[in-house]
């Protein structure tokens, strides 16, 4: 029996249901079309709900899905039918807030689809820091954002001397330049 809490997938969709970033950790959706079908089901089922102030929850295809919307970004975390909903919600909160933190310091303050795509490397690193192969790695948004931000600056100065926001500012400059080249 699998006793360790596990995450089946973490999704970030835009307000039209298109995939911005997605990470699957189990074989329930073996092909890309199966994944897209699941994302579509999740998106249409949750679209009309108001998941902005508090995270919401739904059962979809016998999975527990917790979700939260921030501006034009839709965040989802899926777990098995019997998973502790609050553990999943903690993962969601970590993901959501870390992305918010990174985007609002690294870009023009918008947390939207465009900024997310322009900073896709940050988001992918963020996902990598939250869950590893289905096992929860870290849930504190400050720690997650801090790790991602510190990694995306040049190894110019010793990290400990930089505050997170300094690090993020450097990162922002670094990334917008690199992606808009």
């Amino acid at each position: 029996m699998e006793l360790c809490p596990s995450v089946k997938n973490v999704l970030l969709l835009d307000s039209e249901g298109n995939r911005v970033a997605a990470k699957y950790y189990c074989d329930d959706w073996p092909t890309n079309s199966a994944k897209e079908a699941f994302e579509k089901a999740v998106f249409t089922k949750t679209q009309k709900t108001n998941a902005r102030t508090e995270a919401e929850i739904a059962m979809i295809e016998n999975n527990v899905v917790v979700y939260k919307f921030v501006q034009s970004l839709h965040f989802f975390v899926t777990g098995g039918e019997d998973e502790n909903e609050l553990i999943l919600a903690t993962v969601l909160q970590g993901f959501c807030d870390a992305v918010g933190l990174l985007l609002s310091t690294c870009s023009r303050g918008h947390v939207d689809r465009r900024e997310a795509l322009e900073n896709l490397d940050l988001i992918l690193m963020c996902l990598d820091e939250i869950v590893d192969g289905g096992i929860i790695l870290e849930t504190d948004p400050n720690v997650i954002a801090g790790k991602v931000a510190s990694q995306s600056v040049d190894a110019g100065g010793p990290l400990s001397e930089q505050t997170i926001s300094q690090a993020l500012a450097t990162a922002r400059e670094h990334l917008t330049r690199s992606l808009l080249n």
Partner: peptide, 21 residues
């Protein structure tokens, strides 16, 4: 050029993430 390389990797990761193989 680290920036340019990061940028290309991001593009590759984007393709994989969108289901490209």
């Amino acid at each position: 050029d680290p920036r340019r390389c990061s940028q290309v990797i991001t593009k590759l990761l984007y393709l994989l993430n969108q289901g490209e193989t």
